[in-house]
């Protein structure tokens, strides 16, 4: 809603934001870059959706370590300079290493996984005139609290909540199917009383369409399982859990990343 761009223009914007995130990671010296590159297109699509208005609706990033993607989007909306964004993780910066309400547009500080969906559910119950969009990660579904929140949203018929799962198949120590298999996640959501749609998490046309459908699900809470690529856009990071969190990206890898994104 804030960008109101065509899917084609969003792809261009997404590429620009990836460069910004890579620059920020390089300058700041560390970031959870792999997941942030994975979730970026989801966040870009949500903020561009004509069906949502985050002046009134709510955006909750439950997987707080993905904050760099959210910060990059918010920096465009709130006209925050690249230089300021690049204070990321420095002492005194509003851009904390995990999602923080110090940043304009952030409504919930997060970092410990599994908490955001409960918060989103409480907010959806307390503010029924708005929609609450929560972004979780697939690895985050290891947390029991997620499943508590799913039952709660079903019990209270929270048709105004949308949970978008950034499903990239990677968590800190490796593949989610090795660490803790999620099984048939869509079927589990259905059994918990949610509507669920699986979508390509890097296809803006599909994402925007799915967001519209999810918003129109006014009786049931809605889940969007967005299939994404961990480290999207930078070949050496893609599907490589070593890039969950990186420190001191070398000049060589930084340049290689920039070339791939340009």
């Amino acid at each position: 809603m804030l960008f109101r761009r065509s899917p084609h223009a969003l792809e261009k914007l997404s590429k620009e934001l990836r460069q910004l995130m890579l620059d920020t990671t390089y300058i700041a010296g560390s970031a959870h870059i792999g997941g942030a590159l994975s979730v970026l297109d989801i966040i870009v699509a949500l903020y561009n959706s004509p069906d949502l208005n985050f002046e009134k609706d709510h955006f909750i990033l439950s997987a707080g370590h993905l904050c760099l993607a959210h910060y990059a989007v918010l920096s465009k909306i709130h006209h925050i300079s690249e230089k300021q964004l690049q204070t990321f993780t420095q002492l005194g910066s509003i851009f904390q290493g995990h999602e923080s309400t110090d940043v304009p547009g952030v409504e919930f500080s997060s970092g410990s996984l599994g908490q955001g969906l409960s918060f989103a559910a409480g907010l959806a119950l307390g503010d029924k005139d708005s929609h609450v969009v929560c972004v979780t990660s697939d690895g985050e579904h290891n947390e029991g609290q997620i499943w508590e929140a799913l039952m709660f949203a079903n019990k209270y018929h929270l048709g105004n909540i949308i949970n978008v799962v950034d499903y990239n198949g990677i968590q800190i120590d490796g593949k989610t199917e090795d660490i803790m298999p999620l099984g048939e996640l869509a079927a589990k959501y259905l059994r918990f009383g949610w509507t669920v749609t699986t979508v390509d998490g890097h296809d803006f046309t599909s994402l925007l369409k799915t967001i519209k459908q999810a918003k129109n699900s006014t009786i049931y809470p809605a889940c969007i399982i967005a299939k994404t690529t961990f480290g999207k856009g930078i070949s050496y990071m893609e599907n490589n859990s070593e890039y969950h969190h990186i420190k001191n990206l070398s000049d060589k890898l930084y340049q290689l990343g920039l070339e791939e994104l340009s």
Binding site: F108, S118, A121, L123, L125, G126, G144, E148, A149, Y156
Partner: peptide
């Protein structure tokens, strides 16, 4: 009166979300 069942973590999160909505 919001009944969360035996789920103390979810209940604490729901409470925080309700507070965010001004309660």
């Amino acid at each position: 009166f919001i009944e969360c069942g035996v789920s103390e973590n979810n209940a604490a999160g729901v409470a925080a979300g309700l507070a965010k909505a001004g309660k």
